[in-house]
Simulated assay, not measured.
Amino acid sequence: MNEAPVLPLSSEPVDRLSGPAGDALIAAISKAHAVVEAETRALREQASLDLRAFEHRKSQALLELTRASRGLLPAGVESLRGTPVAEELGHLREALDANMTLLAKHLDAVREIAEVISRAMLEAESDGTYSERLAGWRP
């Protein structure tokens, strides 16, 4: 019987997360977390904000996170349990959940406003207020 030898489970993937590469990954996660928190804070404070700028910052943070994680993260997250990376990812997940909830509320509000405006425009058109004949326009 030529069976492949059974190798003991190694902690190598987690070991790769220590040192400069692991520090870079944690820094990238922290940066993404900070961007998401900043957007969430601005939404909560109803400050005038440029969502495109936040979209760009989040895209950049995701790119950095993807680059920093290449070759470092194991196939399964189970081996990350209890590591600083897992802790940072947990914080990021919580921030993303809060951000997504708040963005959904804002999107619902925008939909409601758009519906009100749309209804008002339809009603204004249907009552003849803006008809060509009443405005004095003749071909």
Rank of each mutant, 00 (worst) to 15 (best):
I26H: 01
S18F: 12
T40Q: 04
Y130I: 13
L17P: 05
R81A: 12
A21R: 15
S59F: 10
R70L: 13
T83W: 09
S30I: 04
P5K: 13
K105A: 11
P20D: 11
S69R: 11
A109W: 08
A34R: 03
D97L: 12
R138N: 12
E78C: 00
A38F: 05
I113S: 10
F54D: 05
E45H: 11
S18C: 06
L25P: 00
D127E: 09
E112S: 09
R57M: 07
E115C: 02
T66R: 15
L134A: 11
F54G: 02
Y130N: 08
V116S: 05
D50M: 09
G71F: 06
D108H: 12
Q60R: 12
G128L: 13
A68T: 04
A28V: 04
E125W: 04
A114K: 14
L25E: 01
G136F: 07
E78I: 01
E78L: 09
R93I: 00
H106F: 06
R138I: 12
G71R: 01
S18K: 10
D15L: 12
E115A: 14
I26Q: 15
A38W: 04
R119C: 01
A32F: 11
V6K: 08
R119T: 11
L103N: 05
V110C: 01
K31Y: 14
S10W: 03
G76S: 15
A21E: 14
E12N: 00
S30D: 15
R138L: 08
A75F: 06
T101Q: 11
L7Y: 08
L49M: 12
A27M: 00
A104P: 00
S10R: 13
L43T: 00
A47C: 06
R16I: 01
H106P: 00
P13R: 03
A109G: 10
E94C: 00
R111T: 05
R44C: 02
E125T: 02
F54S: 09
L134H: 06
E123F: 03
G19R: 09
K105I: 05
L107Q: 11
P84E: 08
S11C: 01
R70C: 04
H91I: 00
M1C: 07
T40M: 03
A109H: 08
L65R: 01
D108I: 03
E125M: 14
S30F: 05
F54Q: 00
R57F: 05
P84A: 07
G22N: 02
M1F: 10
